[in-house]
Design a protein around this nucleic acid. Structure first.
Lengths: 112, 112
DNA sequence: CAAGTTACCTTGTAATACAAAGTACTTGTT
DNA sequence: AACAAGTACTTTGTATTACAAGGTAACTTG
């Protein structure tokens, strides 16, 4: 149990939320998601993202279409399904509640 | 992949942080931690808490002492080690950065 | 056509949350 | 003393999943 491991754990929980949020803004493919998440300091790598996108698809939250690329192989562009939009809305509530709960715990009266 | 499962995932990441925070406020034993976490809507059960406390102890972040109870079996009262205090301070930073990063992603310009 | 780039996918490992069942100590009742 | 009930801590087995590492495939460039 080291700090890095715990930091990874913390990020895990919000990964799905972040990915669904990014997809909700418009069709996008995996490499661009990776770039955006990295820019926002939400660490994620291919080996995590691709299986996660597949789980989201199997769960009916996202779907994709193949799009030819001007340079390189074709890309899978992802978009949310109606169910995905609803799920994302529920996650927004969950996230807000989690932030509130956690802050309540960690900012509670201390006996320092 | 259902909503409840994802909510659990989200909470997982901050569990260690919450537990260390609670212990930092003063010596406390497991059942009282459970009650406080439940009150704050951070779901956790015995089968999660006890192994986690053991991991924290093996990592040198917490230690405990046995205390006789007026009613019932003796209790393990936990407290942070010096290393635990430092770790908690690092997690505070991690948490703040995670909240900032996530909000940046999910509140980014949408094309709704 | 060989090398490089881009994109997507798979396999194996480790971590860990939880359900469920178990162990142990104390108190109250008969 | 035997038993039931309550409290506290522990263990086992299962499922999920993030990641490292390596693989497959399409396209471009020299």
């Amino acid at each position: 149990m080291n700090l890095e491991n715990t930091q990874i754990q913390m990020r895990k929980g919000v990964l799905e939320f972040c990915i669904l949020s990014i997809i909700s803004r418009g069709e996008i493919y995996a490499s661009d998601m990776l770039e955006e998440l990295t820019r926002a300091k939400i660490m994620v790598v291919e080996g995590t993202l691709y299986p996660l996108l597949n789980r989201l698809r199997k769960a009916g939250l996202v779907e994709y279409k193949w799009v030819e690329s001007a340079l390189g192989p074709p890309r899978k562009y992802y978009m949310l399904t109606e169910q995905g939009h609803q799920f994302l809305q529920a996650l927004r509530t969950t996230w807000e509640e989690l932030v509130a709960s956690t802050n309540a715990i960690v900012n509670a009266q201390s006996q320092l």
